[in-house]
């Protein structure tokens, strides 16, 4: 079956593409493959992320320098990617609020002309795809990556796009999903796709 035939078939039956692992992070809970693996009484996302980092036994000091969106994306990716080889795993993420959480903080640092202190360490996170870069660095993933901003989570769109990456042979797996965060409203739903 050539790529196009396979793709046509896939459009009829999306289940051809296998979803092998899932991770959901919301309401201070991390659920992996349907099992609750971590829950924190922490009130803010920042506290929750710190507790989750400890609980997952991650040893990666760079985590603490990340912005909140990157922390959310990073935690969800860690539960799925683990220590396996992901040199052929692409990343396709999307969200609604882009990097507005950090954009807002950065803007506050330049609103006042008399108190004008733009920081490069904050500015670099005013792009939503930085979280993809963070995950790529951690897992040495020199692979296809894309970040979309959509009004709402559209799994079909992300899967269709991922299918093209898989069918073209540019990757064997795709870490795919929704990583949305603005202040205390957040949700990650991330999963691993293969053909």
């Amino acid at each position: 079956m050539d790529a196009m035939q396979l793709l046509c078939w896939k459009n009829v039956k999306m289940s051809v593409m296998k979803k092998t692992h899932t991770c959901t992070i919301e309401h201070s809970k991390i659920t992996v493959d349907g099992n609750l693996i971590f829950e924190s009484p922490g009130e803010t996302f920042q506290e929750f992320a710190k507790e989750a980092y400890k609980s997952l036994d991650l040893s990666y000091p760079k985590f603490h320098k990340m912005d909140q969106l990157s922390k959310l994306a990073f935690l969800s990716a860690e539960t799925i990617l683990k220590d396996e080889d992901h040199s052929r795993t692409a990343i396709v993420f999307a969200n609604r609020s882009s990097s507005l959480d950090t954009d807002f903080k950065y803007q506050e640092s330049i609103n006042d002309q008399d108190n004008f202190y733009p920081s490069p360490a904050v500015f670099v996170y005013t792009l939503p795809n930085i979280c993809v870069g963070e995950i790529s660095i951690k897992h040495k993933m020199q692979t296809e990556n894309a970040f979309f901003v959509l009004d709402e989570f559209d799994e079909n769109f992300l899967n269709d796009y991922s299918a093209q990456i898989l069918l073209s042979g540019k990757a064997d797996k795709v870490l795919c999903g929704w990583v949305e965060l603005y202040q205390e409203n957040y949700k990650a739903f991330v999963y691993l796709l293969t053909l």
């Binding site: 046509c8 459009n11 792009l127 930085i130 990556n145 959509l150």
Partner: peptide
């Protein structure tokens, strides 16, 4: 569809169009 991949967004947007058209 919004492509927001920093400074490669504009090049990627054409690729996204091509990939989604090929996906039917």
């Amino acid at each position: 569809i919004v492509v927001s991949n920093a400074c490669v967004s504009g090049v990627m947007a054409i690729a996204v169009a091509k990939n989604m058209i090929q996906a039917g």
